Computed example of a mutant assay.
Amino acid sequence: MSEIHFYQEGDGQPLILIHGFCETGEMWREFSAALGSSNSVYAIDLPGFGMSPLDRDRITLEEVAVQIEEWMHDQDIKNPIIIGHSLGGYVALSLLELLGNHIKGIGLFNSTSFADPKEKKAMRNRALLFIEKNGVTKFVDSFVPQLFPENRRKELEEEIQVAVKDAHRSSLNGLMAFTQAMRDRPDRSSILAHFQGKKLMIAGTQDSAVPVEDSRKQKELFTHYHELEGMGHMGMIEEKEKTLNLLQSFLKACEA
C-alpha cells in the first residue's frame, strides 16, 4: 500500500497534479476545485513534503515514479493526464518514461525536459550545504520569495506568505533528497518527443528557475506551448486565471 498522501475532487477523466519543490498538494486547491467540474482530480504530496513520509536522504525521480505508479494502482487510476509544476514536471516526465502510452497527456508548468546544466548543478550543491547547515525554516524563508518576480513581491506579499507557510511543511530529508534528485536527473526531451499524446508547456518570461530561453528551445516538442509575459516561476499564483484557463483548454483538447 502506497504512503502517498493525496486529496481528490470531482469525477471524470483522471487528472494528477504534482507540486514542485518546497510545495505540497495544497497549492492546487483552487485549481482542483475548478478542474473537478469535469475531471477526477488527484493532488498528491511527494515523499518528504506535506503529509507523505520519506525515511531517507536520497531518492531518485525514477524511484518516485515507481511509488506513484503503485499509488495509481491502489487508487485504480488508469490513463491519467499528468500536470507537474517545476519539480513536479520532472516527476511527470519520469512517469512518462515508465508508463508511456498509459498516460493520456502531460503538462509541464514552469518546468523543463532538459537536465540541469553545469552551473545549475553547482547551485544545487550550494543549496545542499545551506540546507544541511541551516535547516528547513531558514532555507524556505529565503528560497520561496525568490521564485516570484521581484517587481511583484510587494503586490503578492500575502500569497508569498501562504507559499512560505506551506513550504515549512517540507522535511529536511525531503529537501536534501529532491535537491540531489533534481541535480542528477537525465535529459528527457527524447522521451517527450516520442510521446504521441497531447503535451503542454506553460512558461513565464520572468521565470528565474526555468529560463524562458530554455523553454523556447523545447517549443517544438509540445502540442500546446504558452509563454506568459512577465510571469515568474509561480504561474498558478501570479497568473491564476490565465493559467487555469490554459489548463482547462488543454484538458478539453486531450478529450477531443
Rank of each mutant, 00 (worst) to 15 (best):
8 Q>D: 02
15 L>G: 09
16 I>A: 09
18 I>H: 02
18 I>W: 05
18 I>F: 08
20 G>F: 05
24 T>Q: 03
46 L>P: 06
53 P>D: 02
59 I>G: 00
60 T>K: 08
62 E>L: 11
63 E>C: 02
67 Q>V: 08
70 E>Q: 12
74 D>S: 12
79 N>K: 15
80 P>H: 08
85 H>S: 05
86 S>W: 05
92 A>Y: 09
97 E>I: 02
97 E>M: 08
98 L>F: 04
100 G>D: 11
102 H>I: 01
102 H>A: 12
108 L>N: 09
109 F>H: 14
110 N>F: 13
114 F>K: 07
119 E>F: 11
123 M>S: 13
125 N>Y: 06
126 R>Q: 13
129 L>A: 15
131 I>M: 08
134 N>F: 15
134 N>T: 04
140 V>E: 09
140 V>I: 14
142 S>D: 15
145 P>L: 01
150 E>Q: 15
153 R>K: 09
153 R>P: 11
154 K>E: 15
156 L>I: 05
159 E>A: 11
160 I>D: 10
174 G>Y: 08
178 F>M: 02
179 T>Y: 03
184 D>N: 13
187 D>I: 02
193 A>C: 13
196 Q>C: 12
200 L>K: 11
203 A>I: 07
206 Q>M: 14
206 Q>C: 12
208 S>W: 00
209 A>M: 13
210 V>C: 10
212 V>Y: 12
213 E>L: 14
215 S>Q: 09
218 Q>W: 00
221 L>F: 10
229 E>R: 14
232 G>Q: 01
232 G>R: 00
232 G>F: 02
232 G>N: 01
237 I>L: 05
237 I>T: 10
237 I>A: 01
242 K>W: 00
243 T>V: 13
244 L>R: 10
